[in-house]
Simulated scan of single mutants.
Amino acid sequence: MTHLSNRQLRLERIPDPDGDLADWGPFAHTIDGYAAAGGFDACAALAHSGSASTLTELRATLFFVARADRHSGCSADVSPRVRDLLRRIRAKVAAGELA
């Protein structure tokens, strides 16, 4: 997938958190989370704080989880966190909260 703005998101483009998570990684990369959060350190801090509340913050956090998962060799089960983030992202899109 290419980069998508929040306004370009549609529910059908967001992986189903209760389904197969095969497409979560490519979806996570539809945003440059580092740029969206203000750099690597800011993105890491956001992801580790658990404070993401806006659609952009949630997407940046998902991006960071994807990058961390890849760099760790996919050695940890990130699926519970991914499913939670996807649910929250889908809820924001469904509600039209696109900030």
Rank of each mutant, 00 (worst) to 15 (best):
T2D: 13
T2K: 14
T2E: 13
H3C: 04
H3G: 13
H3W: 11
H3I: 07
L4K: 13
S5V: 03
R7G: 01
Q8F: 00
R10G: 02
E12T: 04
I14N: 10
I14A: 07
I14D: 08
I14K: 13
P15H: 04
P15R: 06
P17C: 10
P17R: 09
P17F: 00
D18V: 03
D20T: 05
L21Y: 01
T30R: 15
T30S: 15
D32M: 10
D32G: 08
G33K: 10
G33S: 13
G33Y: 11
G33Q: 09
Y34P: 00
Y34D: 12
A35S: 13
A36V: 03
A36W: 09
A37H: 07
G39Y: 11
G39A: 01
G39D: 05
F40K: 11
D41K: 11
A42W: 01
A42I: 01
A42K: 09
A44W: 15
A45V: 02
L46R: 05
L46Q: 05
A47K: 14
H48R: 09
S49E: 08
G50H: 09
S51F: 07
S51M: 10
S51P: 00
A52V: 08
S53G: 02
S53F: 00
T54L: 06
T54I: 07
T56N: 08
T56Q: 13
T56E: 15
E57N: 05
L58C: 05
L58G: 04
R59L: 01
R59H: 05
R59C: 02
A60W: 11
A60P: 11
L62K: 05
F64A: 07
F64V: 00
F64P: 00
V65N: 05
A66I: 00
R70Q: 11
R70Y: 14
H71R: 14
S72Y: 03
S72D: 09
S72G: 10
G73C: 10
C74D: 05
S75L: 15
S75V: 14
A76C: 02
D77T: 04
V78L: 10
V78Y: 12
V78S: 10
P80N: 06
P80W: 03
R81D: 04
V82I: 15
R83P: 12
R83T: 04
D84N: 14
L85F: 01
L86Y: 03
R87V: 03
R87I: 04
I89S: 13
I89T: 06
R90K: 05
A91I: 02
K92G: 00
A94M: 01
A95M: 03
G96W: 02
G96R: 03
G96E: 03
L98Q: 12
A99S: 12
